[in-house]
Design a protein around this nucleic acid. Structure first.
Length: 257
DNA sequence: ATGGTTGCCAAGCAA
């Protein structure tokens, strides 16, 4: 059967509900992982999704952060707050759907490389890496890690390498941390199908989208065990062109499982 | 251009 999954930082589910519902109706995605829901669980607009036949696993807090996994297939084994230091701030929810462990993650932004929040970002990435090493093997376990990683890993993933040098989102320390996570054994599914430069995020400010000043910081990473199942991956840039959009575009991947 | 915009929710923070 075909299996489709998408990640999208929606920057408030309540502000973006009509676009998210429209996206699901149009794409018929099986599993949608959203980030920055910015709402506590009791106020999450569940009904809109359930009436379309979707199941939900939600993990959010008041006003900031928050993640949700929305699935047409049954959701099993929901886990929250999985990092060892417990500093996860409603940024990761893991679920099992079919036989795939799916980690929906919203990495900390980190503010700037001199800040305390940057150190927390590095720690977050390291603890997630440790969690994967302790619990999974890339050759045997079907794992998908996807979400807003808030780091561009390679030069092709930033609009201007010189301008981004030492900036938040491309600082050597966070790239190093991200590479350590990647080296667990992930495959960046977008790069299996696309060689050119494409971004998934553009700043709201300074007409960045019009000028295509962006970063590719939203990823769908898969374990080796899933590599042969991949069929396609694309960034849905049209969603960023709307009136009052999220600053991120959805990333979609399709599998044959 | 150390600016700019958006969303939280009602001032300033986070991104």
């Amino acid at each position: 059967m075909e299996f489709s999954i998408a990640t999208w930082n929606v920057n408030s589910i309540r502000a973006r509900i009509s676009y998210v519902i429209g996206f699901l109706k149009r794409t018929k995605i099986d599993v949608l992982c959203i980030q920055e829901t910015k709402v506590k669980d009791s106020l999450f607009p569940k009904d809109e999704f359930e009436s379309l036949g979707y199941n939900l696993a939600i993990y959010g807090g008041k006003g900031y952060s928050g993640v949700a996994t929305i699935s047409r297939l049954p959701i099993e084994n929901v886990k929250k707050n999985i990092l060892s230091s417990g500093l996860d701030e409603k940024r990761i929810i893991s679920t099992k759907i079919k036989d795939i462990d799916i980690f929906n993650a919203y990495f900390p932004n980190g503010q700037n490389p001199e800040s305390e929040k940057f150190q927390e970002k590095l720690k977050f990435i390291e603890e997630l890496k440790n969690y994967l090493y302790s619990n999974y093997n890339t050759k045997n376990d079907k794992v998908i890690l996807l979400g807003d990683f808030n780091v561009a890993r390679l030069p092709i993933d930033v609009y201007d390498e010189e301008k981004m040098k030492d900036k938040i989102g491309y600082h050597p320390k966070e790239k190093e941390a991200l590479n350590h996570l990647y080296e667990w054994g992930f495959v960046d599914i977008f790069r299996m199908f696309n060689r050119n430069q494409q971004f998934s995020w553009w700043d709201y400010r300074a007409s960045s989208f019009r000028k295509n000043i962006g970063l590719r910081i939203d990823y769908i990473w898969i374990s080796e065990a899933l590599r042969s199942n991949c069929r396609s991956c694309y960034i849905d840039k049209d969603e960023r062109k709307r009136e009052r959009p999220s600053d991120h575009a959805p990333v979609v991947a399709k599998f044959e499982i």
